[in-house]
Design a protein around this nucleic acid. Structure first.
Lengths: 238, 238
DNA sequence: ACCTGAACACCGTTCAAGT
DNA sequence: ACCTGAACACCGTTCAAGT
């Protein structure tokens, strides 16, 4: 909390560089020490162990995630912005999603992002308890999605072509819907897929909000009504 | 594919037993060999490597997941059944979700489960391409949820109490919504939380289905209309 | 405050060889 | 077809000691 964080940050930066070169499985304290021109045990002065290092890397990954600021942005566009920014941050480093998923860090940056999601849900008219489980759902979605995106990517840990042919052989035999969906399942248009899944969640929030609302004011019937009235009351509350 | 799978299955069973005792991080080929009364290198006759073993374990985990069968069950209740069965299967063994998440297995059982989800979405009136990304979303949700559930559980890898107090200290200072939501965030009523998140997804499907439908038949306006009309055409299609 | 040297107790995997 | 013995090339971590 004091001043001399300069050394510690150097270690984290070097670790993220090494991560890009070697991947998470190749990230080793000995290799990291080599890069830093020190001996491996020296790292234990900076971090209590490898997991603490990885926790710090996870926090650094999401450090620069830009969150919505203005009070006049609708809740759904806020959510889209947060999700996109988080995904991009995870994509920025090889195995980023795996690094982040392995560690349930309670860090400044994690809470900062979560706060912004809770705000968005509040604007949508979702109560706080629901909002907190919703934000977990969004997080799970993003992590799961990007983990798979990175596993299939250029540095991915497995061979897409052989995987696809194994899938097709199995699906063709016994699982007609899987077979029919094979192109969609192996689509590499990740932007489109990410958006489709995110919109599913957003649609769910709208639907839930409209249900809650119609109990309070039963005259509003459509989901559209619920969503736009939530937007209407979006003034401020911080 | 022939007959002598008896030995291979013994290895997998022993591995799952060992997993329960040692956790995924403690699961070692040497320990497994000891339990089986053989030497570690012998395992390489049965599996090409540790990852192949874990893939087989992941498949075994979901082997007995019971899927909806009757033609007269509504799509949403199907989805709830699949999700609950999958969660229970992952919970059955220590670190089950981590085992499953680490491996993007293309196995019989995975496709079987996915086929059932695709069926459910088809009954909801979702086209196949969307359905395939929706089923991934559901999978990500379940995996993320259970991973956290198990990380916080009795064998969990970290201390909940110290985590909570770290959270509270940070949240109290700068993140009012996180602080206000602290009880919900650290709630251990996992059944309720799981259901809340799943219902969010189900609500999203309803909303999306009603939107798609209102393009085709603009007279139906409410989300309820979309959902129930989807149920109406739920005859059969296999 | 920061780092080293040496060691401990492990890993997954390979491979020639046994039966 | 199934297993062993011996070895290789690593790991994370501890700890007394140095500066």
């Amino acid at each position: 909390m004091k001043a001399p964080k300069i050394q510690r940050d150097q270690v984290i930066r070097a670790a993220l560089d090494l991560l890009d070169q070697e991947g998470l499985d190749g990230l080793t304290l000995r290799k990291l020490a080599l890069v830093l021109d020190i001996q491996a045990p020296s790292l234990y002065w900076h971090f209590s162990g490898k997991q603490a290092l990885i926790d710090a890397m996870a926090d650094a990954l999401v450090m620069n995630v830009v969150l919505p600021q203005g009070p006049d942005q609708a809740w759904d566009s806020r959510l889209r912005q947060i999700a996109a920014a988080l995904r991009q941050a995870l994509l920025k480093h090889r195995d980023g999603a795996r690094v982040f998923a392995g560690t349930y860090v309670v860090s400044d940056n994690v809470l900062r992002i979560n706060e912004s999601m809770l705000e968005a849900f509040a604007l949508a008219g979702v109560d706080l308890s629901r909002a907190s489980t919703y934000s977990f759902s969004v997080l799970y979605y993003i992590l799961g999605f990007v983990m798979e995106e990175q596993a299939l990517g250029p540095h991915g840990e497995f061979d897409v072509a052989s995987r696809k042919s194994a899938f097709e052989e199995l699906a063709k035999r016994s699982y007609p819907r899987n077979f029919a969906a094979r192109e969609a399942i192996f689509s590499t248009d990740f932007d489109a897929r990410f958006s489709t899944g995110l919109e599913l969640i957003i649609a769910g929030v709208k639907q839930q909000a409209s249900e809650t609302e119609s109990k309070a004011a039963p005259s509003l019937t459509t989901a559209e009504g619920g969503a736009s009235s939530a937007k209407r009351r979006s003034a401020r509350r911080g």
